[in-house]
């Protein structure tokens, strides 16, 4: 079992990630969601690759810790 500290750090990192995925990058997330919504009866790998690339880029940009 994880020690208490690792669990907290882990959950805090995930919470920060969740915040970015749902609010910071909400526009990109919505665009990706719309793309899936349009094709969800026939989804295949990378069907919405472009939309996700933008979403992912935004996430990676915002998750990065601010440099001092």
């Amino acid at each position: 079992m994880n020690s208490a500290t690792t669990t907290t750090t882990k959950s805090r990192a995930l919470r920060r990630f969740a915040l970015h995925a749902t609010s910071t990058c909400a526009t990109q997330a919505e665009a990706y969601g719309k793309c899936i919504l349009a094709t969800y009866t026939d989804v295949r790998k990378d069907a919405c690759k472009e939309e996700f690339a933008k979403f992912g880029a935004c996430l990676r940009e915002s998750v990065r810790l601010p440099r001092k």
Binding site: T22, I36, F55
Partner: peptide, 15 residues
Amino acid sequence: HRDTLAAASAIYKAL
């Protein structure tokens, strides 16, 4: 994967 998790969250909201 984090990417999948983010994607699922976006899909959940859209659908």
